[in-house]
Amino acid sequence: MTAIEATEVSKRYGTVVALDRVDLTVPEGEIFGFLGPNGAGKSTFINVLLDFVSPSDGSVEIFGHDCHAEGVTARERIGVLPEGYSVFERRTGRQHIEYAIESKDADDDPAKILDRVGLDPADAEREASDYSKGMAQRLVLGMALVGEPDLLLLDEPTTGLDPNGAAEMRDIIREENERGATVFFSSHILEQVEAVCDRVGILQDGELVAVDTIEGLRESLGGGTKLVITVDNMENGTLEAVRGIRGVETAVEREESTLEVTCTNDAKMDILVELHDAGVDVVNFRTEEASLEDMFIEYTGTDR
């Protein structure tokens, strides 16, 4: 059984293409990370899954139910942390959870759910419209957990959470996955995805440019290495010169006078030689294994 099946999904707003023929299959039981810079179309895709947005072309199914034609049935089995929501006025946190329980015809204990997402009993009795962004995010995650959904759909779940909260979010994602749920979440922050995902998809300008496991993506870098080079001063054109070297995949200026270059192993010496020839003095350099972030930059061509 596939949890999510997208076939040639496109969405156009006038002349702007928000999604361009996205084909994606997420099998049941997987943790899938949906990566891309802001504005790449991640939320549009999730909104198509939720039937908030009708695709211009193509179709999406959740557990075999068309998201548009059978939207309610499709949503019965999923828990959602959407983007751009706001909580209900004049209702406490606990009442929000109760509303989700009622809507999903579930029999969860609101107190347990609230405790699980880290809202204490005092917070639970306060009106949710007074919550901070992080607390609201926890609350809505709680609403998503109601009724042990088969699929969790989380749009930028760590928004508004501090590093601690983000770690707790990842724990919950893992626990839910161990229970048997499929998890689909979007993020523009790579560490979040790298830490928990079985597979990732990278979306750029509405196009799904890569879908693979993290190891797979790393391999496609060709056993890449990252070189962090500190130089005395950068000159115009140095970056371009480095990029022109055979074996160099990306070259980015991190801070004042620090270069990060991903490349094949063989290219390392060539880079140093090139810098020397260009009259740039290398103060220091070290190598690291390429991280997903470097791949991300390579795939999307964006420097964050």
């Binding site: 939207g71 989700a100 809507s103």
Partner: peptide, 14 residues
């Protein structure tokens, strides 16, 4: 416009 509808329609309501 406020986004409350987003929350309501994320749940199985038509």
């Amino acid at each position: 416009t406020s986004g409350r509808l987003t929350l309501t329609l994320s749940l199985p309501h038509s």
